[in-house]
């Protein structure tokens, strides 16, 4: 037990938690925007892959890191546009289209990677974002190292979450977006375009998912691997439900999840960890996500028109 305590009070552990949570925050907020407007975006897993790949590729080809983030966001928005076109005006099944987008984005990344690097066995590295300690704040014991000695992309993740929360609940645009996910006919009656709002939400949300993916290559691992997203996108879909479609709660969910993930990695190295097969620890995050869904199932306030296509003039 003392090992567990030692882990939980170490600054390095909490720094890892915030680092692991960052890509999840980007992608979860992106998914949340889509779902608040009434569109389930199962393209998330593939869009994270394309973001990880294009962001890495841009930097590998000599672009600055922030340009890489921009390229990733653009690529994500492009796939978001495809998803939005098929699911919003055409009203096609959001499940099928989303999975199709994931398959397409994933295979496009693999295809393009092999075109650029036909015979490379060890993936080339790039120079990633460096930690950017915030003056004074980073000197606070434990908290300073955990929160204020991260890379710029991590600060951006939290900034985006706060901004999205503010827009959603404090501005007319946010009200319109939330209403589109609840009662699209009422939005249309106000003279606003449901199609426009939904497409915008999916495109922007997909852009954020891709930045989440780019975090993996540009801030965490500094090279691109085929399996690197590894279900993180699906976990973010669960985190949106866990967060009851609220940005603040979703960020807390991401941190909780990241804490669990960081803990299982560290527990593997303790004497208790040596007793169990390591696969049990790796399974834990996925079980946690399922458990979170079960716990929230009774309480969640699902947007009323989530997954309901809107066809103007139809009753």
């Amino acid at each position: 037990m003392s090992e567990l305590f030692d882990i939980l009070v170490s600054a390095g552990f909490w720094a890892a938690v915030i680092r692991i949570a960052s890509p999840l925050i980007f992608a979860t907020i992106g998914e949340l925007i889509c779902e608040r407007a009434g569109v389930l975006n199962l393209g998330i897993e593939g869009i994270m892959v394309i973001g990880a790949f294009t962001g890495w590729l841009a930097v590998y080809q000599g672009m600055p890191l922030w340009a890489g983030v921009g390229v990733a966001m653009g690529a994500g928005m492009l796939f978001g546009l495809l998803h939005a076109t098929l699911t919003v005006p055409f009203g096609l099944s959001q499940h099928v289209v989303g999975l199709g987008i994931t398959l397409l984005a994933t295979s496009t990344s693999s295809f393009a990677y092999r075109l650029v690097l036909p015979e490379v066995t060890s993936p080339p590295k790039i120079e990633p974002f460096q930690p950017l300690p915030i003056p004074f704040l980073s000197d606070i014991p434990v908290l300073g190292e955990a929160l204020f000695s991260q890379t710029a992309l991590t600060y951006l993740a939290f900034g985006v979450a706060i901004l999205v929360a503010w827009v959603l609940f404090r501005t007319p645009l946010g009200l319109a977006l939330r209403a589109t996910g609840e009662n699209p006919s009422a939005v249309e009656a106000q003279g606003l375009s449901v199609t426009g709002i939904r497409m915008g939400a999916v495109i922007l949300g997909s852009g954020l998912m891709a930045v989440g993916g780019a975090f993996l290559t540009l801030s965490a691992f500094s090279s691109f691997y085929f399996e690197m997203v590894n279900g993180r996108g699906w976990i973010c879909v669960a985190l949106v439900v866990f967060g009851a479609w609220r940005p603040g709660k979703a960020v807390l969910g991401a941190i909780l999840f990241a804490a669990f993930d960081a803990l299982q990695i560290r527990l593997q190295q303790t004497p208790i960890g040596a007793l169990l097969p390591y696969q049990i620890f790796l399974m834990a995050p996925y079980f946690m996500s399922i458990l979170a869904l079960i716990l929230m199932s009774r309480r969640a306030e699902v947007p009323a028109s989530l997954m309901v296509p809107y066809n103007k003039g139809e009753r």
Binding site: V237, V241, Y286, S289
Partner: peptide
């Protein structure tokens, strides 16, 4: 319980 099966079945693949 009304738990969405998309995510649970997807996560079971990894498990």
């Amino acid at each position: 319980l009304g738990v969405d099966e998309v995510v649970t079945t997807l996560l079971l693949n990894f498990i």
